[in-house]
């Protein structure tokens, strides 16, 4: 995935079954953000792989004051990339099992 300066990782091991997973997000390179970023630390949250939209979580982070509106897209994309990777890994595991 593209280096957005925002890192998103699993906050727990993926058992491949749960649809709601814990993710942790933090800014690795604040120079890649457009707005001035107040270093708040790593933000942990749960994300439903089937129901939720990464951009909506990014919007909530903006509303909570973690990021500026101008960086919402980059945060949303970072979450989206990680979620896509998790889904891809799961599909690969399932197809291997067949």
């Amino acid at each position: 995935a593209e280096d957005t300066g925002v890192r998103v990782e699993l906050a727990e091991e993926d058992d491949g079954k749960k649809t709601s997973i814990a993710l942790r997000l933090w800014v690795e390179d604040q120079k890649k953000l457009k707005g001035k970023y107040k270093d708040s630390g790593a933000i942990e949250f749960t994300f439903d792989l089937n129901k939720e939209v990464p951009e909506a979580v990014a919007q909530e982070m903006v509303d909570s004051g973690f990021f500026l509106e101008t960086d919402m897209k980059i945060v949303g994309k970072s979450i989206r990339d990680r979620v896509a990777l998790i889904k891809w890994r799961r599909e690969r595991t399932i197809s291997r099992g067949k």
């Binding site: 690795e28 942990e44 909570s64």
Partner: peptide, 27 residues
């Protein structure tokens, strides 16, 4: 503890904690 909890108006909970230094890129 330096961990804080933020609950958004949509009911989502964010748990904020310091990033381990080993996980930060050199600036």
């Amino acid at each position: 503890s330096t961990t804080t909890h933020v609950v958004t108006s949509a009911g989502r909970r964010f748990i904020v904690s310091p990033v381990p230094e080993s996980r930060l890129k050199e600036q």
